[in-house]
């Protein structure tokens, strides 16, 4: 199936899934954090920390799987700084998040000094036999690395957790009205810190996907703004997991498509086309948010507010 002459739609779909995976991982983590009523703008810092932690662990141990584990731990530990500052010491979340990004970029570069120009161990691709050979769909659905599947599973898991489980209910209660949740006996601070650490671990995984699979190498500043896009995707998705998947794939899709159009020699003004992913994201956002009531926007009511238990 071809569009614009020579671009194969199936191939485009397969490559946009790969392109979107780091953003998706970070976004789904941040979604949980925001559902708990916390706005962590430090996603970029946690991603880059995950990227170097994962890289270092994978290189030292020779195992990409351990690397991803290390990335999740690294991201979670960094996010714990944010958790303690905002939840225990009641610091402003926006400022702390930005500080976390600044710190993460510097810190990761310090750890990474010894890893420049090193090639990490390769992650085997998980081609599912028979199915991978299907024309079209086989390439899209069954010929990826395990992390791509993990990211989709994570979306499904978060969706089910928020919708059906008791944990999801508590999480939403804390995010909607922390005073009421506290009155009901939930440990607001503890729940929020756990959510923040989950977000940090996911962002770390997203960063490691870049440094271990997508690129794969370590260079300073290699996330190049992906964390900010992940934040945008969460709002874009109006805090719904499947929409976050859609948003990440849409963003990845437009980014990949503009490069494909260039490669196919379609005559387009390149310098303006590279703005298109951002402009189209804004446009879709406007369409989705217009003509709806505030409730439909689904923003957690306590988002970004500090919680201090009285009495």
């Amino acid at each position: 199936m071809d569009i614009f002459g020579s671009i194969n739609l199936w191939v485009l779909l397969a490559s946009l899934m790969v392109a979107a995976t780091p953003i998706l991982l970070a976004a789904i983590g941040e979604l949980v954090v925001e559902k708990a009523g916390v706005l962590n703008l430090g996603v970029e810092g946690m991603m880059i920390t995950g990227a170097i932690c994962g890289f270092a662990v994978a290189v030292e141990s020779g195992s990409p799987a351990l690397g991803f584990l290390g990335a999740a731990v690294g991201g979670a530990v960094l996010s714990l700084i944010f958790g303690v500052l905002t939840q225990v010491l009641l610091a402003n979340q926006v400022a702390t998040g930005l500080a976390l990004t600044l710190f993460g970029l510097g810190f990761s570069a310090l750890i990474g000094q010894g890893y420049i120009g090193v090639r990490p161990p390769a992650m085997p691709r998980l081609d599912i036999p028979v199915l991978a050979e299907l024309p079209g769909l086989g390439r899209v659905l069954f010929r990826h690395d395990v992390i791509v599947y993990l990211s989709i599973a994570l979306v499904a898991g978060v969706w089910a957790m928020l919708r059906y489980s008791r944990i999801g209910l508590i999480l939403r209660a804390v995010g909607e009205n922390h005073d009421a949740a506290h009155a009901l006996g939930y440990k607001v601070v503890r729940i929020r810190i756990l959510a923040i650490m989950f977000g940090g671990a996911c962002a770390g995984l997203g960063g490691a996907y870049l440094s271990l699979i997508r690129v794969p190498q370590w260079t300073e500043g290699m996330t190049a703004g992906a964390g900010w896009i992940a934040l945008a995707i969460v709002v874009f998705a109006s805090w719904r997991p499947w929409r976050a998947l859609l948003g990440a794939y849409l963003f990845g899709g437009i980014a990949v498509l503009q490069l494909n159009l260039q490669a196919a020699g379609v005559r387009i003004p390149v310098e303006y086309l590279s703005m298109s992913p951002y402009l189209i994201t804004i446009l879709v956002l406007v369409i989705m948010s217009s003509g709806r009531s505030r409730a439909a926007l689904n923003a957690p009511a306590s988002l970004g507010k500090s919680f201090h238990a009285q009495g």
Partner: peptide, 8 residues
């Protein structure tokens, strides 16, 4: 320098 974009 944008590794992801260059890969794409």
């Amino acid at each position: 320098f944008d590794p992801a974009k260059e890969a794409d």
